[in-house]
Nucleic acid binder design. Structure first.
Lengths: 274, 274
DNA sequence: GCGGTAATGTGGTCAGACCACAGAGAGGCG
DNA sequence: CGCCTCTCTGTGGTCTGACCACATTACCGC
């Protein structure tokens, strides 16, 4: 692994499989700007002819691109048909994490810990932002106040609320990861419902905690927001015995122990700053 | 939105495309334990016959599974041939993030910010761990001391070092994400080399910073480890003008400024858990 | 017994065909 | 002249059959 020669050119040939060469071709065109979001991929038959591969190989690459959230395919004719570059990572991230959890490549414990880290950072970030758009989050909380919700519907709104916080941070990477992490353990979360004796009490507590988190964010109190998110998430998972031990996550415990207090803090508007 | 009825059961039928039904079939078998890591997927022709779809549709699903890092396919015959469940998420996560960055679904800025959050949490976690295995990280640092490395080789080892820290935390989700985040902006990192006048000086600084991070971890000082990681990462990106503004990432600056002192905090034992 | 060779079963690829679908255009009708 | 309908065309979605490369396994001759 030194530097200059030494390699004697082992096998610079492309022993890529046919579909991989198609994928590489598309990726290269994305990188050099030949393809951009909104553009159409060439028709499969054309692409096959251009690259000298069979249409089925092109289709396998297209399938991967679709699964990765890069394109959207549609049958028919006209401007909206065909394969269009869209770059919607959420679904792909969800699928990836969900499958990996299903195949035991990811442990639920690690998923929860990661979610804790990301979400704590998110709320701290949003709390420190100039004028975050928290309207979607608030509307979700209002929707969750309905007493007619089934536990499943409640949890769906719950998940959407948490993702909406990530969206408010403006970080699409974290947003996609949060959505994926949540969906990957959705089955376990729903299974956790079984061990809850008094669902209404639990729902009421969750509603209160959500309001508390949002209040801390609006107040611009990052410390409190972090602490509340931490206890909110660990609370549910320990209650449902989904995760045995509550991971202390040093940085958050330190924050919890911080002397900032959890009472009403300032409520400063922190308007113009950006 | 609302609650009970209203939907009139829109379309419970499976208008899944053929390849999606194959994917769903495999995922269901993963979830109920019929398939586990190490198992073989049925041969494509068998699977096609069983599910009543064409072999090409099966192949598209298999291709997605392979791209998602769930299986490894091999030609030939015998126990090692065929499609085997492996669940290796790193490559898939890297591909996903890389493609999304290429397609402008993810901004480089967000990738860097996310990396900052995750890596700060990782070092704090490892610093608080009972007996983390830091030997791989140390060996990578030793390898980076060589003066014969090209910048590219140095950066490759650099990336491996950061991923090794995540691996030391034992959280495979974060490890995969870290590897993916890094690889997704690898092109930009290498492009950043161009604006560095004195590479040797930069390399020396990076070496020193790496040692400093590892030292803080070994000392169990989570706060210092976080702070050093933060400045280490932002340092390179601001130097190479990859990210214009240095994102302060409230929680880290807050932690650095926290009055708790940098002494032993946390140090949660987290002994037997595996 | 042993070595070499054929058979077998797997994924990888290609070619061709057909279908469903949706827009575009030509044509007819009022 | 305008509107409506109908065909035409191009797209992805799917299936079938065929062939290849490859690695193991079984068999056969020695």
């Amino acid at each position: 692994m030194s530097s200059t020669d030494a390699v004697t050119i082992p096998a610079p040939v492309d022993d890529l499989r046919a579909w991989q060469s198609v994928l590489a071709h598309v990726e290269a065109q994305l990188l050099d700007g030949t393809l951009s979001p909104g553009d159409h991929l060439p028709p499969e038959r054309t692409l096959a002819a251009d690259l000298g591969v069979g249409r089925s190989s092109v289709r396998e690459a297209v399938r991967v691109l679709e699964a990765m959230g890069l394109i959207r395919t549609q049958t028919g004719s006209g401007p909206s048909a065909g394969a269009i570059i869209v770059a919607t990572p959420q679904g792909a991230m969800s699928a990836l994490l969900r499958l990996q959890v299903a195949a035991q490549g990811f442990r639920v414990r690690d998923v929860v810990k990661t979610r804790l880290v990301l979400e704590a950072a998110v709320v701290a970030d949003v709390a420190g932002a100039a004028s975050p758009d928290l309207e979607p989050s608030e509307r979700l909380l209002d929707a969750m106040d309905s007493s007619e919700l089934t536990p499943q519907e409640f949890l769906a709104l719950d998940a959407a609320f948490h993702v909406s916080l990530a969206a408010a941070s403006g970080n699409e990477v974290v947003t996609a990861m949060m959505a994926g992490l949540r969906s990957s353990i959705e089955g376990y979360v729903q299974a956790g419902l079984a061990v809850i004796d008094d669902w209404e009490a639990t729902a009421a507590r969750l509603r209160e905690e959500h309001r508390g988190i949002l209040a801390a964010i609006v107040a611009g109190d990052a410390f409190t927001a972090r602490a509340r998110v931490h206890s909110h998430i660990t609370g549910y998972y320990t209650q449902t015995a989904l995760v045995t031990e509550a991971p202390p996550t040093p940085e958050t415990t330190a924050v919890v122990a911080a002397p900032t207090g959890t009472g009403h803090i300032a409520l400063s508007r922190r308007t113009a700053e950006q």
